[in-house]
């Protein structure tokens, strides 16, 4: 793709589970200084889905937090839905652009938890927190990518899987179709913490090449907290995976993470 709407693409930044990201020149009409922006091309949607997705993104964009990726605009051309946001060159927790210290991961996750709290305070659940949606910055991180899967295709609890299946980070309750609450984001934050602190996921190895088997495993086996984790971190992970009513708030989790750095 060369571009969409009045965005001219420079290059692809990578294919994700829900679309492709592009580095693009900023069109004059956007009221920001940046020279470059990131455009996510989500794909074909109907008129209704476009309106719903735009409404969700507007609500997301209206939340004030220094730890949320700033969204610029959302649009469609020939039924292809896209949205644009600030370009962050640091890469994500899943694939950092350069070598990073362990403390950077904790700092970035604490930022993402603060961002999640800001969303929750506005009545929004992110639904898709995972290592590829936490982008690294100089002094922490930013939470990206509100989970639009449900909005674009109502009823869909997860859509196709890339190399790193985010189902590994999704509260099985929402995979089973239970109503979404803020607690599902805490599960995802806890699973992300486990992933980089222990070096393995909470389900151990998953048959990533067989999505159906992966899903069955996630739905049928309880998560296991690695014994290699220091007790303090293990407890923190457990509190996030526990009964939804006893999980910490995202803000409380952020405070806990700060003490670990």
């Amino acid at each position: 793709m060369q571009g969409i709407a009045d965005y001219d693409f420079v290059r692809s930044l990578g294919q994700g589970n829900h679309g492709e990201f592009f580095l693009a020149h900023r069109p004059d009409r956007l009221p920001v200084e940046a020279e470059y922006v990131t455009v996510k091309v989500v794909g074909g949607t109907g008129e209704d889905a476009f309106r719903r997705a735009t409404r969700e993104l507007k609500a997301f964009a209206a939340v004030r937090s220094p730890h949320l990726v700033t969204l610029y605009d959302a649009g469609q051309q020939a039924g292809i839905f896209y949205y644009s946001m600030e370009y962050l060159p640091g890469g994500s927790l899943a694939s950092p652009a350069g070598p990073r210290e362990r403390a950077d991961y904790y700092r970035a996750l604490a930022c993402a938890a603060r961002a999640a709290q800001a969303l929750h305070d506005s009545g929004i659940v992110h639904r898709d927190i995972n290592p590829s949606n936490i982008l690294l910055t100089e002094d922490g991180g930013k939470l990206a990518d509100l989970g639009l899967a449900q909005v674009l295709a109502p009823g869909v609890t997860i859509t196709g899987m890339g190399a790193l299946p985010s189902v590994e980070y999704t509260d099985p309750a929402s995979l089973r179709g239970e109503p979404t609450t803020t607690a599902v984001d805490l599960w995802s934050l806890g699973a992300t913490l486990h992933w980089f602190a222990a070096g393995t996921g909470i389900y151990g190895g998953l048959p990533v090449h067989d999505p159906l088997l992966t899903l069955r495993k996630v739905l049928s086996s309880p998560p296991k907290v690695s014994e290699d984790l220091p007790p303090k971190i293990a407890d923190l992970v457990r509190s996030c995976l526990g009964d939804p009513s006893t999980r910490p708030t995202a803000g409380q989790l952020a405070d806990q993470l700060d003490t670990l750095v």
């Binding site: 571009g3 969409i4 209206a62 969204l71 605009d73 649009g75 469609q76 051309q77 292809i80």
Partner: peptide
């Protein structure tokens, strides 16, 4: 996909001043 720019586009600004 390569022809979508032959179509008009529609955009809603998300960024807050």
């Amino acid at each position: 996909p390569d022809d979508i720019r032959s179509q008009p586009f529609e955009s809603v600004l998300l960024i807050q001043p």
